[in-house]
């Protein structure tokens, strides 16, 4: 029993398995993907101008749009990542405080206790397409004023955009910010 007796079979086996696992297998999955939404290129949604990925969050900074969550990568979808700040990090705690303060400045009619935590913390991917339902509702007063819409209209719009847990059982309720903003543009072209 010597190592060299195993080297040649090992190399040949590697070559064959490479064929099976990195050519046949991905091609099989790719073939299946041709039947999936958008042929396996990631689901998209369009408004009257452009096409966007539904699942890739975008940066919304303008006052007339519902804002997304803070992002450690500025919603640059060429990369991804979180802040990785530890819960006791003093700088981080200060940063969150700053986010709360600027949220209150941009939404002066909102009480501090109404701001949900997702709106002042960065997501893991930096590309989170969602916010919580409360995260959308807390922005309604601002948007109603800027767009000259009734608050009730906006509440209805937000409620219509709530993504419920599957079968009413699995996972949290949430709102896709991009879809919400596209729907918002549709009811008030500005």
């Amino acid at each position: 029993m010597q190592m060299k007796n195993h080297i040649l079979p090992a190399i040949k086996l590697t070559a064959l398995l490479l064929l099976l696992l990195t050519v046949v297998y991905p091609l099989a999955v790719w073939t299946v993907a041709q039947f999936a939404p958008n042929k396996g290129k990631g689901a998209t949604i369009a408004d009257n101008k452009n096409e966007y990925y539904v699942n890739i969050g975008q940066s919304f900074t303008a006052d007339q749009y519902f804002h997304s969550r803070p992002s450690a990568v500025g919603y640059n979808a060429a990369v991804s990542g979180g802040s990785n700040k530890g819960p006791s990090n003093k700088e981080y705690i200060k940063e969150v405080q700053t986010r709360i303060d600027s949220f209150l400045i941009r939404n002066p009619m909102v009480q501090k206790a109404e701001i949900p935590v997702d709106m002042v913390t960065a997501s893991g991917s930096g590309l989170d397409p969602h916010i919580s339902v409360q995260g959308a509702k807390v922005q309604i007063k601002r948007i109603a004023e800027i767009r000259g819409l009734e608050e009730a209209t906006l509440y209805k719009l937000v409620d219509g955009q709530v993504e419920k847990p599957r079968w009413g059982l699995l996972g949290p309720e949430k709102i896709n910010v991009l879809k919400l903003n596209i729907a918002l543009d549709a009811i008030s072209l500005r």
């Binding site: 299946v32 993907a33 042929k39 452009n50 919603y75």
Partner: peptide, 29 residues
């Protein structure tokens, strides 16, 4: 793939966001 995970051999896609910024989106197999 049916939930929306990409399986494509094309490179990064260029995209304009709703607010009008130009971004690139990584994708792949």
């Amino acid at each position: 793939v049916f939930e929306g995970t990409p399986m494509t051999f094309e490179g990064k896609t260029n995209m304009t966001t709703l607010q009008g910024e130009q971004i690139q989106v990584s994708t792949g197999p």
